[in-house]
Design a protein around this nucleic acid. Structure first.
Lengths: 340, 340
DNA sequence: ACCATCCGTGTAATCGATTGCCTTGACGTG
DNA sequence: CACGTCAAGGCAATCGATTACACGGATGGT
């Protein structure tokens, strides 16, 4: 019904004071007499005044809002991360403006541009691509404080906080080796961002160290469909290796589904592992062994870094790799049961 | 690095024209001579000018942004809906500002207040609660165009688009009756919003019509945990009914997990159904029979209604209930296999 | 040749809140 | 009693972009 916005001027008029006083009374920036405070407060509520955040933001050149850009909000790992970040920001009295880049560097650049134009106070981003994202991310980082989470792009001076991917794959492959695995395939994404690359590198390094045969490395995208598709290809090409290691849980869930369809038993015929520990990985058939990321800590640390950057000038960038842990479930034979 | 923002004035100076001309050249609001356009464009890119969306929004009193408030972004149904809405908005050249109310009416009111203060052009909301959400939603609807999706609150004059919950429960219960079910329990949420209430009502009505015995109606929240908990309670109280009907897929996934833990076989001992058809419902053990919501259509229709409301003055509100469909999987015995 | 248009551009008001600076009056002190 | 100090509150500039209005010059119709 848009009742012709109530402005601070209306409130001032009704309270019989100046707009300056209204502003000070409502924001508490400077003290006002109790009587005036009462008047103003009453006038404001009477009129249903809610302020104009835009005008306020223009004048103060801050919005108390931070923007966050993630590749996908359909991926439970990112939604969990977003919730954690939102929660951490709330503690700091800030709000979150969430955008999805849909794993597309062009869309990502658009989102960043728009966030900067909207004068958010800072940005939290999990960049799509290791090189295609660089330009936009670097530009944004030059305009305002920016923290990369989970993944990072090379060539940008900014903070980063994520998980130690090498340690994660060490956990996975040590576990698999302990279960007698002699050959393994890796299913991941073609995206060449840091975490994707570090996971492949970790897979290669640790299979090498343990003398595990690398059957195949298949690259597609982070989705259930790709996990299914990759499995079908492997099955068509011949017998599966002892284990299939996946770069995230969605892929792994797809692998499990394709195995079930093909009558391949997990974990009897093949072991499968995921990455992220999304809620659904405990509910699959069989439940999935996976790497748990400390996403709450990642979020808290990211917000801390951002707040620091908002205050003072830029320090040297911080690279924080947190330690992951392994959650063992039935897809690799279960906790202590079914030793291979 | 914050290089002291580049303003339109800087661009104007460098291009040797007035700010008015720069504005017109860059926005294309009015034609400028080719020579000047060239000059301005060059100056803008040289300086890395990106505009100040805040100032622009203040002057034009529109932001080309719509806000969306959902109860949870951890629920895949809502993330799918959000993605659909975002996509539909993109077609219309608008952006999405996403907020989560965490199923808390107070938080929801806060979000709405903040969206209005930020001058979004319109709001898409799936309200948390049937009565506790009313005040805030009604207030927001009075300030700007607002469309409710999926659920609605009573007493607010606004458009709504969602699914026909009664038809959905008819589909579910007809299907279960066809499988020989004589008794059923319903597991849902305590939230008294429209869809929750209509689903309970539908369950009651159609069990009555079909002569199915209502074993129990358990109310908690929309989560895997609650599904698990509810199942444990039922198991503790005695034998399960022939079927457990759940108000959403998360609850149903919890039910399946608790059954598996307790050694109760689905679908041999009990049939289980969900609601929403989230991606993970196809991957559970066993895969879940569920109601598919046409969320793409819901999103498109919501955006259409919003765009209409943005243009002209308010018409009489539209209530659009779209038709759901049933996806039959193994948790009720599968498509045509395993007849009971 | 004259007047009506129209196009491109500049000037300045405007959006609504915040805030530096100043005025006013009350109070305390020497 | 005169003067310094201080708190409360008003005035007006300001944030940066948009746009109504004005203006000069070119074009075209008669």
């Amino acid at each position: 019904m848009t009742v012709g916005r109530v402005t601070i001027r209306d409130v001032a008029e009704r309270a019989g004071v100046s707009t300056a006083t209204v502003s000070r009374a409502l924001s508490g920036a400077k003290p006002v007499s109790p009587a005036v405070l009462e008047q103003v407060t009453r006038a404001a509520t009477d009129l249903g005044y809610s302020g104009n955040g835009i005008a306020s933001a223009l004048r103060r050149s801050r919005t108390d809002t931070v923007g966050m850009v993630v590749p996908s909000i359909a991926n439970p790992f990112f939604t969990a991360l977003v919730e954690s970040v939102e929660h951490a920001l709330q503690q700091a009295g800030r709000q979150l403006f969430l955008c999805s880049s849909r794993s597309d560097p062009a869309m990502e650049a658009l989102r960043l541009r728009s966030l900067v134009a909207r004068q958010v106070d800072g940005i939290v981003i999990s960049p799509v691509h290791g090189t295609l994202s660089t330009e936009a991310v670097a530009w944004a980082a030059g305009q305002l404080p920016l923290v990369q989470v989970d993944r990072y792009v090379s060539g940008v001076t900014s903070d980063w906080v994520g998980v130690d991917d090498d340690a994660a794959l060490r956990l996975v492959l040590d576990h698999l080796a302990g279960r007698g695995v002699r050959s393994a395939a890796f299913v991941s994404s073609t995206l060449t961002n840091s975490s994707t690359e570090l996971r492949v590198a970790g897979f290669t390094a640790h299979t090498g160290r343990l003398g595990i045969d690398v059957a195949e490395v298949l690259l597609g995208d982070y989705s259930i469909d790709w996990g299914r598709e990759a499995t079908r290809r492997m099955l068509a090409a011949g017998p599966l290796p002892d284990a299939v290691v996946c770069a995230d849980d969605l892929i792994a869930l797809g692998v499990l589904q394709a195995c079930a369809e093909a009558g391949v038993s997990v974990p009897r015929d093949v072991l499968v592992t995921g990455f992220d520990d999304i809620p659904y990985s405990a509910l699959s058939d069989p439940p999935l062994t996976t790497v748990r990321q400390p996403q709450d800590e990642i979020a808290v640390e990211a917000v801390r870094l951002l707040s620091a950057a908002l205050g003072t000038s830029r320090d040297s960038p911080a690279y924080t790799a947190l330690t992951p842990s392994l959650v063992v479930r039935a897809s690799t034979g279960g906790g202590s049961t079914r030793p291979r």
